[in-house]
Nucleic acid binder design. Structure first.
Length: 940
RNA sequence: GGGCUCGUAGCUCAGUUGGUCAGAGCGCACCCCUGAUAAGGGUGAGGUCGGAAGUUCGAAUCUUCCCGGGCCCA
């Protein structure tokens, strides 16, 4: 035990120890903004567009987030995924323009602005509200843009698309004009929440629910025409809104329920759902038997018709799934003009969407005399009394229920059918030499022309298309793109003006002045580009009215559903910026909720306008849930903030986390997962750092080693072959948008192939060989190529770290890894038996571990290994094999069926390399050295 | 209530058309190194594949039902 460091020469400073300026600690939070700034200053996005001029284009189109707050985790996931696509496709050799966009119009923003304004909003003209909305949107676009760029996403942030800019709005109206030209835009009735006080439609977000006392009534409808042998005379319905009874056109039943016939006296046999009958009969004070005379299925009632209790008309029984046994009688009063479900039923059954209530809440002249001009609240009482008097009322009672109120006026709202604009999904139109409906064309496209990632997206989108109703595209709002419709002057009969030519004329004006012009100008001025004489579709009144300077043409006050805004982006952005051939776009990426939202609105508008889908492929990702799989929300307190994550971990760690996910379904989020991602990131970073640090004295121009046939069995050839495998895996993963696969391969390569195997095995030669030894230079050559390739392979995921490492590897000042392409396969000859050797290594390591336990050896360098002599193994360098096991030497033996570990502690130990390889002896400087170390020092 | 979808070791995930498929990494435990050091290496322990029934010679993998999530509707 005399080998103490004190009395022996120290060789540490004769070693080629690693050194590098690439810090172990990433300091992402400080350093990433510097990368961002560097890329901005060098015009990285523009330079990539320049490089891309000669390349095939891959058009990826961004779905616009809503500009109404800071970005959240969902945005982070979405934007990072998109950025990995953009960067990886670019490095695969495509030209990938990326134009980020923002969705600006719509109720949530208007709602928030109005709420902030408070009382004064009521008296404010639309144009003022719009200006406030615009300011709010601009604020959030700025914020979100900064945050997205902080996530190191690359795009045309200097020239994004913004749906409230005139050029966008004009392009959107062009799409509308095309749909009008197809003949599939029409005006029809639809019930909406209606504020009588404000004479306006309200959206769900504008409702507040308060308790209200109303009268609920059980009403008898006399059967007009029942199936032969039917034992009933009346149907009993229940409603809490007696004022809607004048609009009753049907009674809905659930076909699967049992309905009983009950004798309630005076020859009346009434139908009530069996399950509800006892309650109903008791409530009505019925004293007779509660046993049904007979029982039938809901389906058996479908052909029944009945007489309206106070209007001369018959209604009929229809089936509806929404009929439940919670309240009422199991027979639901249906007024298609006064209820959402009733409306759907009405559409399906071909009923009139009948609404006798005017915008001031009073009845029109289509109702009986005694109700005309009466407001609905007064009508409630009148209807009840009328029913009572005529013997149609079985029971009535006051009750308290939660009822929607206008959040501004606090007054109760009603459901009222109003005129709205629709896009028909079932009306066939001519295009591409075929006649088919929008629905059919969309389904065909989904079946044949669109690729879905994951595949089940196709089923989902198709299912939604199959069942969706006509698209109601009008909203009674201020903050949106106006529907450019014109109505004849008061007192003049005539159809509304909305023709392809008129829409295009207004689109031209809006393209110049923006949609504010609609709210600021007279109808006549809005039509300045419109020539009715050149428009064969122009209604007659338009020609006359435009010719008469005194005619007061009225402009419409509806705006377009915001989904028409974003759904037009394939035209407003892709086609306008990149030309006709850029549509269909190669890829859309959004959360799976967009099967109903943007994917569908884009698909319908593009097919309606061009008869082609807007995209070739759709990639969807799931939603964030917490670690228990529950929905994330601020109110539950389980939401993480993007700002915090960026501050605590940095963008590259967040991106590394995103790339680790299986994004097909729900995505669990928890702070701990970011810590794990941080650990993995450090591993990757350290691996890169170690590669770089061992290249400190390597100049590829001067020192590159040329591999030959004889190097095929070297561990360096093995490592380069592994790099080729990695390259193939990662390229393929990027091509298939399988980022998790790329992530896994990259991590495994850094962690196992490099850190635990190759770098551990080559450490000795890098440190102890003569700096210029061919063996060392060969390893450095391999490591250089590996580092160079690895930087590029991780660049789409870790843009900052990859560039930092790349710039360390090539200390030129000018390079940027994001201007490079992904590596290709390198020509390298490798001994195919390496795979077997690596499998054997597992066995050897196990044997060594066992021996260290049984022989009480601490340091593996005190071990040698005897292994079977086979022609296969003898092709390999025994030093390589020993280094792979971290031991001093390997010997072959004919009798070594099982690997045999030998204790070398009795042999001399090299004071420089710490190996006991059998060549250690005292050298001319007095030190104990191996032959290799002596040679490295030039000693005899 | 309906459509689509998910539920594999503590965690994140692989598991093609049913037959060594019960796997990987992380984490954890133990050990080593101290010339990648707020680093590095080795070994090991963990799961009746959400539950039940069924089809089959054989199922994590097919069918049905149930339980628990998610998105979108109602």
């Amino acid at each position: 035990m005399s080998e103490t460091k004190q009395d022996r020469p120290s060789y540490k400073n004769t070693l080629n120890l690693p050194r590098t300026g690439f810090a172990m600690k990433a300091n992402l939070v400080q350093n990433e903004p510097a990368s961002l700034k560097r890329w901005q200053e060098m015009g990285l996005y523009q330079r990539l567009r320049e490089l891309g001029k000669s390349r095939k284009r891959f058009v990826f189109h961004d779905g616009p987030p809503y500009a109404n707050g800071p970005i959240h985790l969902g945005h982070m996931l979405n934007k990072v995924l998109k950025d990995i696509v953009v960067r990886s496709r670019g490095m695969l050799g495509y030209d990938v323009p990326y134009v980020p966009g923002w969705d600006c119009h719509g109720l949530p923003i208007e709602h928030k602005v109005i709420q902030e304004l408070g009382e004064q909003a009521k008296s404010m003209p639309a144009i003022q509200i719009r200006r406030k909305c615009k300011a709010s949107v601009e604020k959030y676009i700025k914020l979100q843009s900064t945050q997205m760029q902080r996530l190191l996403t690359l795009g045309d942030y200097n020239n994004p698309y913004i749906t409230m800019l005139p050029e966008y709005e004009a392009a959107e109206l062009e799409v509308l004009a095309n749909l009008v030209e197809r003949g599939i835009v029409y005006r029809g009735l639809k019930p909406v929440h209606w504020s009588i006080a404000n004479r306006t439609a309200l959206a769900d977000a504008e409702l507040e629910y308060y308790d209200r006392e109303d009268t609920s009534v059980y009403v008898l409808f006399e059967v007009a025409n029942a199936p032969a042998g039917a034992a009933f005379t009346h149907l009993m319905i229940w409603t809490t809104t007696p004022w809607t009874l004048p609009a009753n056109l049907a009674v809905a039943v659930n076909e699967r329920y049992d309905y009983g016939v009950y004798d309630i006296g005076n020859g009346r046999r009434v139908v009530i759902a069996v399950e509800l009958a006892p309650r109903v009969l008791a409530a009505g004070g019925h004293t007779g038997s509660a046993e049904p005379v007979s029982v039938l299925r809901g389906a058996d009632l479908l052909c029944v018709t009945y007489k309206h209790p106070f209007i001369d008309r018959t209604g009929r029984v229809v089936g509806a799934e929404y009929v439940t046994l919670e309240d009422g009688t199991g027979l639901v009063h249906t007024a298609p003009g006064h209820g959402a479900e009733d409306y759907q039923t009405g559409l399906r059954e071909g009923l009139e969407i009948y609404c006798p209530v005017k915008d001031d809440g009073t009845f029109d002249d289509t109702v009986p005399e005694w109700l005309r001009g009466v407001d609905v609240w007064t009508a409630n009482g009148k209807v009840v009394e009328h029913l009572r008097a005529s013997g149609h009322l079985f029971h009535d009672h006051k009750f308290l229920h939660s009822y929607p109120h206008d959040w501004r006026g606090k007054s109760p709202v009603i459901f009222r059918a109003t005129e709205q604009w629709f896009i028909s999904v079932d009306k066939p139109f001519e295009a591409n030499c075929t006649t088919a409906s929008l629905r059919q064309r969309a389904i065909d496209a989904v079946e044949k022309d669109v690729t879905f990632y994951p595949g089940w997206g196709r089923n989902r989108l198709r299912g939604m298309l199959e069942t969706r109703p006509d698209w109601c595209i009008s909203r009674q709002r201020s903050w949106g793109v106006p529907i450019p419709a014109f109505y004849p002057p008061e007192g003049v009969e005539g159809e509304v003006l909305l023709t392809p030519a008129s829409v295009r004329a207004v689109a031209k004006l809006i393209g110049e002045k923006g949609t504010d012009v609609w709210f600021l100008s007279e109808a006549r001025d809005l039509l300045q580009y419109y020539d009715p004489n050149a428009d064969p579709d122009a209604p007659q009144w338009v020609r006359e009215a435009l010719a008469d300077p005194n005619a007061a043409i009225r402009k419409g006050s509806d705006t377009l559903d915001v989904w028409v805004d974003s759904g037009s982006s394939w035209n407003a952005v892709v086609r306008r910026r990149f030309g006709d051939e850029a549509v269909p776009t190669d890829l859309y990426i959004e959360g799976s909720d967009q099967h109903r939202g943007w994917f569908q609105s884009s698909l319908l508008l593009a097919i309606g306008a061009t008869a082609r889908p807007p995209f070739k492929a759709i990639l969807t990702h799931g939603f964030m849930v917490d670690r228990d799989g529950k929905k994330m929300s601020k109110s539950l307190g389980n939401a993480l903030e993007v700002e915090d994550l960026l501050k605590d971990f940095g963008a590259d760690v967040c991106r590394w986390w995103v790339s680790s996910l299986n994004t097909d379904n729900d995505i669990k989020v928890d702070l701990d997962y970011f810590k794990v991602a941080g650990e993995e990131y450090r591993k990757v970073r350290n691996t890169l750092r170690y590669l770089l640090s061992n290249l400190f004295d390597f100049d590829p121009k001067a020192h590159r080693y040329t591999f030959t046939e004889t190097d095929a069995s070297s561990i360096d050839a093995w490592a380069l072959d592994e790099l080729n495998r990695l390259t193939a895996t990662v390229r393929s993963a990027y091509e298939q948008f399988a980022f998790r696969k790329a992530h896994e391969a990259l991590f495994s390569f850094c962690n196992e192939t490099l850190s635990a195997t190759y770098l551990a095995a080559t450490k000795d030669r890098l440190y102890c060989d003569a700096a210029d030894s061919p063996r060392r230079r060969r390893t450095q050559t391999a490591m250089y190529d590996i580092a160079h390739a690895l930087c590029r392979l991780v660049a789409p995921i870790l843009p900052h770290t990859a560039d930092e490492a790349f710039r360390t590897l090539i200390p030129d000042g000018e390079v940027c890894v994001h201007l490079e392409l992904l590596p290709e396969q390198m020509p390298i000859r490798v001994n195919g038996d390496w795979q077997k050797v690596m499998a054997q290594r597992e066995v050897w390591l196990k044997a060594i571990e066992d021996a260290r336990q049984s022989m009480d050896i601490d340091n593996p360098l005190d071990c040698g290994l005897v292994i079977a002599r086979t022609p296969e193994l003898e092709a390999f360098d025994r030093v390589d094999l020993a280094d792979l096991c971290g031991i001093s030497r390997v010997e072959f033996a004919d009798d070594a069926d099982q690997p045999r570990v030998i204790d070398l502690r009795h042999e001399p130990r090299c004071e420089r390399s710490w190996k006991r390889d059998g060549t250690v002896k005292q050298r001319s400087d007095g030190g104990m050295l191996t032959d290799r170390d002596a040679a490295a020092l030039g000693l005899a």
